[in-house]
Computed example of a mutant assay.
Amino acid sequence: MKWRAELAVLAATGLLSACASTRPVSDGAVKIGKPYVVGGRTYVPRDDRNYDQTGLASWYGPGHHGRTTANGERFDMNAISAAHPTLPMPSYAEVTALATGRTILVRINDRGPFAPGRIIDLSRGAARALGVEKDGVVRVRVRRVYPSDKRRASLGAQRSAY
Rank of each mutant, 00 (worst) to 15 (best):
A129Y: 00
I120C: 05
G131S: 02
A115G: 03
E94H: 15
P85Y: 10
T86E: 15
R102Y: 09
L155A: 07
I104K: 09
T86I: 14
A115D: 06
N78H: 13
P116F: 07
I120N: 03
R139I: 02
R143N: 06
D135Y: 01
V132R: 02
G136I: 10
V142A: 14
R124M: 12
P113W: 10
R107C: 09
N78C: 01
M89P: 04
P147S: 12
A129R: 13
K150T: 14
Y146H: 14
K134L: 10
P147V: 07
G131A: 06
R128W: 03
V140R: 05
T103Q: 10
E94T: 01
A129W: 00
D135C: 02
F114P: 09
R152A: 15
P90R: 12
K134P: 00
L105M: 14
R102G: 06
V137L: 12
A82T: 05
F114C: 08
G125S: 03
P90K: 13
R107N: 03
L130E: 00
L130S: 00
V140S: 04
G117S: 07
R102D: 11
K150F: 09
A82P: 03
S123I: 03
R124D: 10
G125D: 02
G117A: 05
F114I: 07
I120Y: 00
S148H: 09
I80H: 03
E94L: 09
I108S: 10
G156C: 11
N78T: 03
R159T: 15
P113V: 09
D121P: 05
P85A: 14
S154N: 09
F114W: 06
E133H: 13
T86G: 03
L87F: 06
G125C: 06
G125T: 07
I120E: 01
I120T: 06
R128S: 04
V140H: 05
A93M: 14
G101P: 13
R151W: 03
R124S: 11
A153D: 15
F114K: 08
M89G: 06
R141N: 14
A129M: 03
V138G: 01
A82N: 04
A127S: 08
S123K: 05
A115H: 12
F114N: 08
R102K: 15
I108L: 14
P113C: 09
V137D: 05
I108G: 01
R139E: 15
P116Y: 08
R139V: 02
R144C: 11
S154I: 13
L105Q: 01
S123A: 06
A99W: 01
P113H: 08
